[in-house]
């Protein structure tokens, strides 16, 4: 963590600002993966449409700054307003998707969340006013009065970093609260939880909405990072990427999603350095992880640690 805090300084010293951007992406995707981990890892809800909220957050910034520049409506470029609207829209969307999807189980849940994500994807594609398929370039980033200047990559990095810490702490508190224990309990035995007298559906829905909101905030950051918004942000393969990060890092662990997101981007960077066709290596790797990996990278670390303890 301390290492991550020093990234922009080191990058400035060795004059490689690219690293700041790359690690910034890691932080944002970590936040997205943390939010998915809340419902996937702890709640056992395999949502295959989590990138939707990333898209909503991104489009709030994209559309906001678009009107701020084109029509000169300055409040629409305000970052706090972006965050607020992104939170509200993500929450409403998650409420809508969750209230229908959570009535279903297992494979139906996976597919219905996927289909809903696809529905929002098509809304973005069909929306010609805001670029449609081609997307929308941001000519300015979200404005936070004079306190925070996001046009500087380093300040954006530290905003991402701070929010990552906040959400890590938040998810730590949440999963150890009564609410979190209930969600985890419902994962291992839903019937029992219901028989004890808890309305599992409502608790799950709340968890689903919380996860959506956090990912929506990650979307706001992501749009500022890339200066670009397009429907591709919520393409279903992006949802797949988020699942990969969570599983790769270790589901249902606090730091798993962060490790997963970092590992994912490192692998992408490393493998695409070897060959242009890097996914031809990455694809079979995923198959192997699914077959042999148990608990992801975090699980391997835990097993290594145990092995070390026994040896001592």
């Amino acid at each position: 963590m301390l290492g991550l805090a020093a990234v922009p300084l080191i990058a400035d010293v060795i004059d490689e600002p690219f690293y700041t951007v790359m690690f910034s992406r890691m932080l944002i995707l970590s936040i997205g993966a943390i939010s998915l981990n809340l419902i996937l890892g702890f709640g056992g809800m395999v949502s295959f449409g989590h990138a939707v909220y990333m898209g909503i957050g991104s489009y709030v910034v994209g559309i906001g700054t678009f009107h701020a520049i084109e029509d000169g409506i300055s409040w629409m470029g305000n970052g706090l307003i972006h965050l607020t609207i992104a939170v509200v829209f993500s929450a409403l969307t998650a409420l809508f998707i969750g209230s229908i999807s959570l009535r279903t189980r297992g494979v139906y849940f996976i597919m219905i969340t996927l289909a809903f994500a696809q529905m929002f994807y098509f809304i973005a594609v069909g929306n010609d006013n805001y670029g449609g398929d081609d997307g929308l370039s941001l000519y300015t980033r979200s404005k936070f009065y004079n306190i925070l200047d996001l046009s500087n990559d380093n300040s954006l990095y530290y905003l991402n970093f701070t929010l990552l810490i906040v959400f890590l702490y938040f998810s730590h508190r949440l999963i150890n609260s009564r609410f979190g224990i209930l969600i985890r309990g419902a994962k291992s035995n839903e019937k029992r939880m219901e028989n004890i007298g808890f309305p599992v559906y409502r608790y799950r829905l709340v968890a689903f909405v919380i996860a959506g909101v956090i990912c929506g905030i990650a979307g706001v950051l992501s749009a500022n990072q890339t200066d670009f918004v397009s429907p591709a942000v919520m393409h279903w393969t992006r949802s797949g990427d988020l699942i990969i990060m969570v599983v790769l890092g270790g589901m249902g662990t606090l730091f798993g999603p962060v490790i997963g997101a970092v590992a994912f981007l490192f692998l992408e960077e490393f493998l695409s350095g070897i060959t242009e066709f890097w996914q031809i290596i990455f694809g079979p790797m995923l198959v192997l992880i699914a077959i042999f990996g148990n608990g992801g990278i975090d699980g391997i670390l835990v097993r290594l640690d145990k092995w070390w303890q026994i040896k001592k």
Partner: peptide
């Protein structure tokens, strides 16, 4: 099902 999603996504 999650592992299956992951593996076939890799494919």
């Amino acid at each position: 099902h999650l592992d299956q999603v992951l593996a076939t996504f890799g494919l």
